[in-house]
């Protein structure tokens, strides 16, 4: 699009530039970042498992690299990202089908918004994601 003045689009700053309203903006940002993290993980996963096709030695060598504590921590973070992304994805799917946002209402001050209407659902998503991530953490680091 042709620029008609001094450009003032926020870009990536716009993802985190709010924060004085609701936490849904942060959930929006976290959903995008966790999605990107999962994409990176899948790419790495395909690369790592493809070394099996090269031969047993290459496979063993790759596995020795990725079985260190740093990669274990990375895998756990991917699991936590998956927990949030999956549960929040269900919330977004439900909202996009018009659930939890309410019906159109007469706007009378102080205004009630659909964001407030789905707030309990958003809190429930955060709690479920936290519990799943906690359970995963015990499985990764305590129960092994």
């Amino acid at each position: 699009m042709q620029t008609r003045g001094h450009p003032n689009r926020l870009g990536i700053r716009g993802w985190v530039g709010g924060g004085r309203w609701g936490f849904e903006r942060y959930m929006y940002t976290l959903h995008r970042l966790s999605g990107l993290a999962l994409l990176v993980y899948f790419t790495m996963h395909i690369f790592v498992t493809s070394t099996r096709a090269v031969g047993p030695d290459a496979w063993k060598q790759t596995m020795s690299v990725v079985s260190g504590p740093l990669f274990t921590m990375g895998e756990y973070l991917v699991f936590a990202a998956f927990a949030f992304h999956a549960v929040n994805g269900i919330r977004l799917g439900a909202i996009e089908l018009g659930f939890a946002v309410g019906r159109p209402i007469e706007p009378v001050y102080p205004y009630q918004t659909s964001v407030g209407g789905q707030r309990r659902l958003a809190r429930a998503v955060l709690m479920i994601a936290f519990v799943v991530a906690l359970w995963g953490g015990l499985d990764f680091f305590v129960w092994k």
Binding site: E24, R25, Y28, H31, P107
Partner: peptide, 13 residues
Amino acid sequence: HFAGECSQVCPKG
């Protein structure tokens, strides 16, 4: 993707 900011800042509800 429902960040919801538009509704939070709308001065007319």
